[in-house]
Simulated assay, not measured.
Amino acid sequence: MLKGLGGLGDMAKMMKKAQEMQGKMADLQEELANMTVIGESGAGLVKASCTAKGILNGLDIDPSIFHPDEKEVVEDLILAAIKDAQTKATAKAQEEMSKLTEGLGLPADVKLPF
């Protein structure tokens, strides 16, 4: 009875997969917003924490680095820690996205928007 419809069965499967992926993407977005990564610089003297989506939410600075004549060094350490945290956030997001795409049978290198 449906022989004349050709690939519509495949289309229905694709639509179902797309809906599943949309739901899983929404779940992953929420998970990434709740995951925390820590970046550090100066052998741990400055630590920055951010979500796996790259939102900075904390700084921890060892008081031993507060010397008035080293203001620029402290600023550089803070920036380095933030950049490290953001790099780790990007890597974590990509890792989690890879898990999602592999589970759906998509190629590992497919780039999906966040």
Rank of each mutant, 00 (worst) to 15 (best):
73 V>F: 14
10 D>V: 00
60 D>P: 00
19 Q>Y: 09
80 A>Y: 02
9 G>R: 13
54 G>I: 11
6 G>Q: 07
51 T>H: 09
24 K>P: 05
62 D>T: 03
70 E>A: 09
85 A>T: 11
7 G>V: 02
36 T>Q: 12
92 K>V: 05
80 A>K: 06
22 Q>I: 06
46 V>F: 03
32 L>K: 08
33 A>P: 04
51 T>W: 08
16 K>R: 15
85 A>V: 09
28 L>F: 01
76 D>T: 07
42 G>H: 09
44 G>V: 10
20 E>A: 12
26 A>F: 05
44 G>K: 07
96 E>S: 13
73 V>K: 13
49 S>E: 15
24 K>N: 05
52 A>W: 07
85 A>Q: 09
5 L>A: 01
28 L>A: 04
26 A>K: 14
54 G>N: 09
42 G>F: 06
66 F>H: 03
28 L>T: 04
47 K>G: 09
15 M>W: 12
80 A>P: 04
17 K>P: 00
25 M>V: 11
93 A>G: 11
17 K>L: 15
20 E>M: 06
79 L>Q: 12
66 F>G: 00
49 S>W: 04
73 V>Y: 12
17 K>G: 00
73 V>T: 14
93 A>W: 09
25 M>D: 01
29 Q>K: 15
83 K>P: 00
53 K>I: 07
59 L>H: 06
22 Q>C: 02
31 E>M: 05
71 K>Y: 09
13 K>W: 04
35 M>W: 07
62 D>E: 11
67 H>L: 11
65 I>M: 07
15 M>I: 14
33 A>L: 11
65 I>G: 03
86 Q>G: 05
20 E>R: 11
61 I>P: 05
42 G>D: 07
22 Q>E: 15
9 G>L: 11
18 A>K: 13
68 P>C: 02
62 D>K: 10
71 K>D: 11
44 G>D: 10
61 I>K: 07
40 E>K: 11
58 G>W: 13
28 L>H: 09
8 L>C: 04
68 P>Y: 12
74 V>Q: 06
72 E>P: 03
49 S>T: 15
34 N>V: 00
38 I>R: 14
52 A>T: 10
68 P>N: 12
86 Q>V: 15
53 K>Y: 01
5 L>P: 02
67 H>D: 13
42 G>P: 08
70 E>S: 08
45 L>Q: 08
49 S>G: 12
82 I>C: 07
21 M>T: 03
9 G>P: 03
7 G>E: 13
72 E>V: 05
14 M>K: 15
39 G>E: 13
49 S>H: 12
23 G>V: 07
43 A>T: 13
6 G>M: 01
30 E>Q: 13
73 V>S: 07
81 A>M: 10
21 M>K: 04
